[in-house]
């Protein structure tokens, strides 16, 4: 049997992937936050001994497949983000939600930039500033995501060390 924490983590990723591909009306599509990255950042903060760069890279690879992107594009970005969260998780945990949201903003920006650079090299970079909207919406949603994820994990995860 899978441990509860893992079940919750897998389920949250499943939901995050669903939210990533669920069809939205045209005008909100550009504002769709990067759910998978946000959820994985949470797990890298909450369970850093389980969620390392390897998981980050593999999930990023899945993101590549679901986006029809070049394999490694999102993987590289997500892996670097998770790496930073991983080595800084103790500092992030004690920060206030607003401070966390600011850090998350820059982390999401880093990932967007890496993905943008690769798209640019390959030759189909989007030429609109709306491309960076998910960074802003993601950072704004972070406090809620954090609280919901924490409550879910505390309710279902057997280990609540944080």
């Amino acid at each position: 049997m899978l441990p509860n924490n893992l079940k919750v983590a897998l389920l949250s990723l499943f939901v995050a992937f669903m939210l990533t591909i669920i069809p939205l009306p045209g005008w909100v599509v550009e504002f769709r936050p990067d759910w998978v990255t946000l959820v994985l950042i949470y797990w890298a903060m909450a369970l850093p001994e389980r969620t390392g760069v390897t998981i980050g890279w593999l999930v990023g690879l899945m993101l590549d497949v679901s986006h029809g992107a070049i394999l490694g594009q999102h993987a590289l970005g997500l892996m670097l983000v998770i790496y930073i969260v991983h080595i800084q998780h103790q500092r992030l945990r004690v920060a206030s939600l607003v401070q966390q949201a600011i850090v998350i903003f820059f982390l999401l920006l880093l990932k967007q930039l890496i993905v943008l650079w690769v798209s640019g090299i390959v030759g189909h970079a989007p030429d609109t500033w709306l491309y960076f909207m998910p960074t802003i919406t993601g950072a704004m949603l972070w406090p809620w995501i954090y609280i919901i994820m924490r409550d879910v994990r505390r309710k279902f995860g057997y280990r609540a060390h944080y």
Binding site: G52, V53, T54, W57, I70, L71, G72, Q73, A75, L76, M79, L80, Y83, H86, I87, V118
Partner: peptide
Amino acid sequence: ATLRMIIFVIISLALM
């Protein structure tokens, strides 16, 4: 973690 990060960067670049 740092070492793995560097390895994954290289793998990603190769993969892309």
